[in-house]
Simulated scan of single mutants.
Amino acid sequence: MELLKVNGRFDGKKIAVGILVPVIGGAITGWLANRNAQEKYDKLKKPSYSPPPSVFPIAWTTLYTMMGTAKYRVGMRQETGNKEKPAIPLYELQLGMNYLWSFLYFRWGLRGTALIEMTVLLSTIALTTYEFYQVDRTAGTLMIPYLGWVLFALCLNYHTWKLNDRK
């Protein structure tokens, strides 16, 4: 519970919104982007280190929850100062880019374009992590697993693209 207290305060509504926006947004995006695309994806050659499909929803739900918690903490800190920091706009940008990647990769099969977009996404996540850390060390730390997972996903994206048609 201490994780959810910022400056001794807890705001249940803000933490709920902070977590639910990325979790529900990710679920909706995944459903829309993956609908009718899973059969094509299953037929692709994948690198040996590619995890089973059941890992992805668990990983993303956990990461979205951590991201939402980080945003909540930064938002709570910015209520009492640090309003000039670009942390929240960067967070929103990277979240939108995260959602876009699913459409590029799964829905439209543009794995090369998705690879480029994910490279920019990774940079944006790194910047967001840095800015979050400047505002709240815990928030910045909560973003690190997401940064690592997207780096892993970048490698998966690259090797899957390389092993297949390179579209």
Rank of each mutant, 00 (worst) to 15 (best):
V120F: 14
Y99A: 14
E117L: 08
K71C: 10
V135F: 05
P86G: 09
I88R: 05
N98R: 12
E131V: 01
L100M: 14
L122F: 13
Y91I: 01
E117F: 09
F103N: 05
L127C: 09
R107L: 07
S123F: 13
F103D: 07
K83M: 13
T138F: 08
I88C: 09
T138Q: 12
E92A: 10
M97T: 13
L95A: 04
M67L: 14
I116D: 05
M66Q: 11
E117M: 08
E92I: 15
R73W: 06
G75R: 00
G96P: 04
R107Q: 14
W108P: 00
G140M: 08
E92K: 14
E117S: 09
I116R: 14
R73G: 01
L100E: 04
Y105I: 10
T113L: 13
N98K: 12
A87W: 00
F106V: 11
W101R: 03
Y105R: 03
L115Q: 08
A87F: 05
N98I: 14
R107S: 12
Y72W: 13
M97G: 07
L121K: 02
V120H: 10
L110S: 07
M76K: 11
Y133P: 00
E92M: 14
G75C: 12
Y72E: 06
T113N: 05
R107I: 04
Y72F: 10
I88M: 14
L115T: 12
G112N: 12
V74G: 01
L95S: 02
G68A: 10
K85L: 12
M118C: 05
T119S: 14
K85Q: 10
L90T: 05
R137V: 13
L127S: 10
Q134F: 03
S123N: 11
T119C: 07
L100N: 02
S102P: 04
T113D: 04
W108V: 06
T80P: 00
T80G: 02
W101E: 03
E117Y: 09
L104E: 01
G112W: 08
L121E: 02
E131R: 15
E131Y: 12
K85P: 00
E79P: 03
L100S: 15
K83T: 15
I116G: 10
M97Q: 08
A126D: 03
P89E: 06
